[in-house]
Amino acid sequence: MRNDYDFTEGKRGAVVPASGKSRITIMLDDDVLAFFREQAEAQGIGYQTLINAELRKAMQPPKSSPLTVASLRKVLKEELAALRTITA
């Protein structure tokens, strides 16, 4: 069968590296990998893409809790009390 192929004039194609990505080897627990594969299949995306997205989320600074009326009142009360002790 090898005689059927003639690669004497063949040239290797250019290997295009993925920009901004690195190929690594990582060991994940089987249950973690199964979880991401199931989630990715349900969302119609690749499991590596999903893992990458989750890692990106972990890189983001934590969001502060939203300002509520109760927390605003508490801060104002503390600040007014501090102001009264300074001016007294």
Score class of each variant (00 low, 15 high):
M1Q: 11
M1N: 11
R2L: 14
R2F: 01
R2N: 15
R2G: 15
R2K: 10
N3M: 14
N3D: 14
N3P: 04
Y5F: 13
Y5E: 14
D6T: 06
D6C: 05
D6H: 03
D6G: 00
F7K: 10
F7V: 11
T8G: 04
T8C: 04
E9A: 14
G10C: 06
K11V: 09
R12E: 07
G13L: 08
G13K: 12
A14G: 11
A14M: 11
V15S: 13
V15E: 10
V15K: 15
V15A: 12
V16L: 05
P17L: 08
P17S: 12
A18E: 09
A18W: 12
A18G: 08
A18K: 14
S19Y: 15
S19D: 12
S19P: 03
K21W: 09
K21M: 14
K21F: 13
K21T: 15
R23M: 14
R23Q: 11
I24S: 05
I24H: 01
I24M: 14
T25P: 00
I26P: 00
M27L: 13
M27S: 08
M27G: 07
L28R: 08
L28S: 04
L28Q: 09
D31P: 00
D31W: 03
V32S: 07
V32E: 07
V32G: 03
L33S: 09
F35R: 08
F35P: 01
F36G: 02
F36H: 03
F36A: 00
R37A: 03
R37H: 14
E38G: 10
E38I: 01
Q39D: 10
Q39G: 06
Q39W: 04
A40S: 05
A40C: 05
E41Q: 12
A42G: 05
A42F: 10
A42Q: 15
Q43V: 03
Q43F: 01
Q43I: 04
G44A: 05
G44K: 13
G44E: 10
G44H: 02
I45M: 14
I45V: 13
I45K: 07
I45Q: 09
G46P: 01
G46H: 05
Y47W: 11
Y47R: 00
Y47M: 05
Y47C: 01
Y47I: 00
Q48E: 12
Q48L: 10
T49M: 08
T49C: 09
I51W: 00
N52K: 06
N52V: 02
N52G: 05
N52W: 03
A53Y: 07
L55G: 04
R56S: 11
K57Y: 02
A58Q: 11
A58H: 07
M59P: 02
P62S: 11
K63M: 04
S65Y: 06
S65N: 11
P66F: 06
P66Q: 04
P66W: 03
L67I: 14
T68N: 00
A70S: 09
S71V: 06
S71K: 10
L72K: 12
R73G: 03
V75F: 07
K77W: 07
K77M: 02
K77F: 12
E79S: 05
L80N: 15
L80S: 13
L80G: 08
A81P: 01
L83V: 03
L83A: 05
R84L: 06
I86E: 04
T87D: 02
T87E: 04
T87L: 12
T87R: 08
T87I: 12
A88I: 04
A88H: 01
A88V: 02
A88R: 11
